[in-house]
């Protein structure tokens, strides 16, 4: 069976949603997002020291840890989502919890829970060779991050080991809602496209329909994370969350 990620980009543009698992009822939140048009999910594994995240996801991770959420709890959530959805599921987290749980032991369980890919925020390819090889051996695709300051030579090396898609971070700095895309967004995407055939999913700072549609003109999909987590933190109901997700696809007046 081909990996769900590769199949997904062949069929349609991707609208990915990120959630920090363990902050609220993650299975219900995931279903609400799927109902709102999200067709790929990034399942955030909470970490005590999330250096790449802005305040919204930091707070979500802190709450998830107060709820004692572990990597294995995240896999349980994946399994429950997988029970009635076939969208790609990508694990998203920091290296230490992945390393500490012994990859050879939990990766098979991740695969059988329906995980298709993994993005490790603080594991550049130089350090990740063994780990990413082990992931691939279990048909869990390692997803690399490309940034506005990634050089062409580095991009070429990264795309050599990358599978599935590239995650393009629109902005420098941490995750979080911002207003608007950088002026050179389309040029950056074009430069990446000239170096690889892999699909590009753009994330970081996307705050609404306008950003999303602008991204889709150039890239193969977009990710929304902090915007959803902020809405939930501010008390949005699941029904409202579905509406918020739909808003990224349909223009509102």
């Amino acid at each position: 069976m081909p990996n769900r990620i590769s199949a997904s980009f062949k069929d349609h543009k991707v609208f990915a949603g990120y959630i920090t698992v363990g902050d609220g009822d993650s299975v219900a939140i995931a279903k609400a997002l799927i109902q709102g048009g999200v067709n790929m999910l990034e399942l955030g594994v909470p970490f005590s020291d999330p250096v790449a995240d802005g305040p919204v996801i930091q707070r979500a991770a802190q709450r998830a840890l107060e709820n004692h959420t572990t990597l294995f709890d995240v896999l349980e959530v994946a399994k429950k989502i997988r029970a009635d959805s076939s969208i790609p599921l990508v694990l998203f987290g920091y290296f230490n919890p992945f390393l500490h749980a012994d990859p050879a032991a939990w990766l098979p369980q991740a695969k059988s829970s329906g995980i298709d890919g993994i993005l490790v925020v603080d594991l550049p390819y130089e350090e990740g060779k063994n780990f990413y090889r082990t992931c691939l051996a279990h048909d869990i695709l390692p997803i690399p991050v490309i940034t506005p300051v990634t050089s062409t030579s580095r991009l070429k090396i990264i795309t050599r080991y990358a599978k599935g898609f590239l995650y393009y971070a629109n902005h420098k700095g941490t995750t979080g809602v911002r207003s608007g895309l950088p002026a050179d967004f389309s040029e950056k995407i074009a430069a990446i496209q000239s170096a690889t055939h892999l699909p590009i999913l753009a994330g970081f700072g996307i705050s609404g329909h306008k950003d999303a549609q602008e991204i889709l003109k150039h890239a193969d999909g977009f990710v929304v994370g902090s915007f959803f987590m902020k809405a939930l933190e501010d008390g949005a109901s699941l029904k409202e969350l579905t509406q918020i997700a739909r808003g990224f696809l349909e223009e509102r007046i």
């Binding site: 290296f95 594991l123 550049p124 300051v149």
Partner: peptide, 18 residues
């Protein structure tokens, strides 16, 4: 190669690599 025996390395988000 960035290590002392097996300790050390550069485990940072991609944005900090350059």
């Amino acid at each position: 190669n960035n290590y002392y025996d097996k300790f050390g390395g550069i485990f940072v988000p991609e944005i900090l690599m350059p």
